[in-house]
Design a protein around this nucleic acid. Structure first.
Lengths: 180, 180
DNA sequence: CTCGTTGCAAAGCGTTTGCATGGCA
DNA sequence: TGCCATGCAAACGCTTTGCAACGAG
């Protein structure tokens, strides 16, 4: 799947009885020029376009990102921030996943082909068609750990389950095989 | 790691200056008796408890599932349904992931150890501490494909999988009560 | 010309919060 | 007894929707 251009976007929209509007073109353009590792919320996209004096109403923003997500052009991210973020849905080999600090929301992008392979395998097994797969790794970042997590929470808080889960798994990583 | 009991829940709560209340105990109980592969939204949990005449206010539900998620007892799922779902956070080897139809929300649970391994590997590389990792595979189910996805869908169409999924809540209550 | 699309404002919906009351440690 | 937790209702923030005007095909 090649990256979208205004022309191919128009073609795909028209094929489904939808239309290419200046608004949709501008939105696509923003995402195409977004530096790698960035993703925008509807609100952020809105104010970004506002700053460029290409204002688009918030409702159109919402309608467009939803449509473009359903078309497979954008990717809807559910990070731990209480609202959705969007980015270009880049096919393999640009496909990637996210590691998020649940304390400060810091996000790191990472690639891992085997995850996509595993997802595909699962889809084929069930007879479903893969649209996207997202691995979200919920973590505590080093800064948050240094800042005192988990003591930023009441007294001697700790997520004992997660900790012992981590310990159990170290042995698994050692034997790491990455076989599909 | 052993599953939580009312006693161990109390111990962990008290250790952090929190308290075991009948409400929290009932909520834990519901999740412990939930058939595998099921997860509840706050609203569903609320009406489930209401049907048993053990009513708990919605705000307490929200406060409790949030607290228990942060303690690592529950797992907060971001499926493609516009609201969060919760399930017991079962450590390896019961850890699992989800395949979701973005049209009808039909969800299939699947296990895959390599995903957990890859996540842990990534965490160690970045120096982050793993709390949880969730692979969500967004798909179109065979039925939605047959209906002509994506161009010919009526705006409010949902395939029969979604309908039968919706019906399960009642049967869950029945099953759960049998186990008491 | 038609019918999808936009902008605006209002509504919707899941979730959170302030506050007085209740109840666990 | 002190203080966390609950229930209620109101507030909140993100997102969706109704409607009249607009404009792409």
């Amino acid at each position: 799947m090649p990256p979208y251009t205004a022309t191919s976007l128009k073609a795909e929209l028209n094929a489904r009885g939808w239309r290419l509007t200046p608004q949709r073109e501008k939105i696509l353009h923003v995402f195409q020029n977004l530096p790698r590792g960035n993703h925008l919320s509807a609100e952020e996209l809105y104010s970004l376009l506002e700053q460029r004096e290409e204002g688009i109403s918030l409702s159109t923003i919402y309608r467009s990102v939803k449509l473009m997500s359903r078309m497979g052009i954008l990717r809807e991210l559910e990070l731990a921030e209480g609202h959705k973020h969007y980015e270009l849905n880049q096919p393999y080999p640009h496909h990637h996943h996210h590691l998020v600090c649940i304390q400060c929301n810091k996000t790191i992008e990472f690639k891992n082909d085997s995850i996509l392979k595993q997802s595909l395998k699962q889809c084929e097994k069930e007879g479903f068609q893969l649209i996207d797969c997202q691995l979200t790794v919920m973590t505590i970042c080093p800064e948050a750990l240094r800042m005192g997590w988990p003591s930023t929470l009441p007294s001697n808080w700790s997520c004992t389950r997660a900790i012992s889960e981590g310990k159990t798994l170290k042995s698994l990583v050692a034997e790491d095989e990455d076989k599909e």
